[in-house]
Simulated assay, not measured.
Amino acid sequence: MHTMWKGSIQFGMVHIPVKMYAATEKQSIPFRYLHKECQTPVKNVRYCPHCEKDVSWEEIIKGVEYEEGKFVLMDQEDLKALQPDNSKAIKILDFVQLEEIDPIYFDRTYFLGPADTGEHAYALLRSALEQTGKIGVAQITIRSKQSLAVVRVYEGCLVMETIFYPAEVRHVTHVPGVPASDTELPAKELKMAQQLIENLSTSFTPENYTDTYRQALQEAIEQKVAGKEVVEAKGNEPEKVVDLMEALKQSLEKTKTGKEKSKKKA
């Protein structure tokens, strides 16, 4: 596993040397843009419409558009002076309960492994987090970008998850048309909806869920490589039910049947 970052976890006067690894990876199939006429991959070009010519990286500067067509220029010296502390440390600021942080705040996950002679301190922090049920809220600077993060235990391994700052999470009031929380609903519909949720409730098993589109795409690619005709994937077309009550009834009937079959297999 490729080491992405080396540093330490710091809380109080304790320093735990760690190495950071990517915990997740995208499984999407990458597409390239090709020239239709000759199937050659096309290149991205930096082009200045005013000078009407291609521009090299050496001629590029950074700017922030504060009004339409007006920019504040920021050179490397300006940016360097503003860079946050890059001390290669995951600085734990507070310890909180995981349940206190809504999932909307979570961004990316990284595994943390002990580095050098940090195994004992690593195991100590892991055990302390497990026994107290707490997670650490921290700050870290990666590639000159300061991020808020949490440090917690996942299957015996310390993990760091970057989380959004409150200012980066949009307020729900910006979403148009959301019904009020105290909206009155027909008791019968509500009861049936609750029953449907109960019928579909189970324990979370990640292995039960697969990216069916990616699988179908991979199969289609393999068929094309093998020179075979691509067959359209067959799927169950959902029945169109306009009436909400009727939709609830049909859904309940299907989920009851599914539960009964599961009990018989068990």
Rank of each mutant, 00 (worst) to 15 (best):
E161S: 07
E67T: 06
E65S: 12
T257W: 06
V159K: 02
T212D: 08
T162P: 02
C51I: 02
Q194M: 15
Y154T: 11
E207T: 08
S203H: 15
I142G: 00
F164N: 03
V55Y: 01
K191V: 14
R126G: 03
I142M: 13
Y154N: 15
H174Y: 08
I163M: 04
D54I: 08
T210R: 11
D107K: 13
Y33L: 15
I135P: 00
E239S: 10
Q139L: 12
S56A: 14
H50G: 10
V159S: 01
P103E: 07
L129F: 09
I92Q: 00
W5N: 01
H15R: 11
E229R: 14
E229S: 12
F204K: 04
Y47R: 03
F106G: 05
P186R: 02
R46V: 08
I135Q: 01
S8R: 12
Q83L: 15
S28P: 03
P166M: 12
E219D: 11
I60V: 14
F106N: 01
H2L: 13
L125S: 01
L98N: 11
R126E: 08
H174W: 10
D94C: 07
K134A: 13
T212R: 09
D107C: 09
G227Q: 06
Y33F: 14
E253S: 10
T3I: 13
E68F: 08
E77R: 09
G69I: 06
K263I: 09
F111E: 00
I9Y: 01
A167I: 11
G7N: 06
L158Y: 00
K91C: 08
Y122F: 12
E52N: 13
K188Y: 11
V159Q: 07
I29M: 08
R152E: 08
Q146E: 08
V178L: 14
E100V: 14
A23F: 13
A233G: 04
E232S: 08
G258L: 03
A167T: 15
K259C: 01
E155K: 11
E68S: 10
E253F: 03
T162N: 01
E246S: 13
E219H: 13
K188E: 15
G177F: 03
D102P: 01
A23D: 05
R152T: 12
D78C: 10
A220R: 05
N199V: 06
K91N: 14
S201N: 06
E198D: 09
K249Q: 10
Y165K: 12
T117G: 13
G133W: 02
A220S: 14
M1F: 11
Y122T: 08
K70E: 15
L125R: 00
E65W: 13
L248F: 09
P176F: 06
A167F: 12
N236G: 12
P49E: 04
F111D: 00
A149N: 00
E25C: 02
